[in-house]
Amino acid sequence: MRTVLRRLTTTGLLATGLLAPAASALAVPALTGTAIADTGGSSAYGLTATGPVNLPPVPAVSSGSGTTRKTLLKEETTRLVTASVLDVRAVPGRASSSVARLAVPTAGLTADAVSATCDGGRGSAHLANAVLAGRRLSAAPPPNTTLPVDISGVGRAALIINKQQRTPDGRLSVTALELTLPIGGTAIRVASATCGHAPVKKPVKKPVKKPAAKPRKPVKTPAEAPVPVPVKHDLPVTG
């Protein structure tokens, strides 16, 4: 509990210290775009805001090997977005993030739970009782579902649900919710998980008498694509 409180205090200081509009958009690329070649390196965070209100990703974990996990009981550094029980974990090839009781009052966005999972290069996102400006959102939306939302007095905002992007190093980044507000380029990202393909482990020899463990699904590595054989064909092209 003490560590959680300490983290909250640190986050608060950071957030207040970075309120100047210039200091934005630093944290997320650092997490989703780091150039760990696809060796299964994973990362996850619960919540972040960029723009005039800058909230670095909290809590945030990354893993090159082994399991890492962080939980934050409450996040209310800024009134723009609040949440409780933010739980993130990362192991090679797998990452997950879940956020409960999310509220973005300006956009009329609330959700009982928001989660994103990335497993072996595949991603999914789930929403529980999510409502945007009085409109109920699908529980398991397809990737990159975009919803525009008009906020009276503020303008048109956009919400991307289950945002899935491939990072330059071939890993997959899944963000359950990304809300862009027309206020100085404010963007709020909730529940994000990034993962690559788990490294293939050498099978461990088990003692003969031990009962057989559940068979592991082998990690499929696609074959090299064939060298093309030119075909006799004419297509007028643009010279």
């Binding site: 093309p228 030119p230 075909v231 297509l235 092209v237």
Partner: peptide, 26 residues
């Protein structure tokens, strides 16, 4: 790269690699 073609006429190019994109103006 959509295909690897060997056109009947070898000039101006013995191999043509059509892409999956088109001229936006033509």
């Amino acid at each position: 790269v959509m295909a690897t073609l060997a056109p009947a006429k070898r000039t101006p190019s013995p191999i043509v690699l059509p892409l999956g994109t088109h001229s936006a103006t033509l």
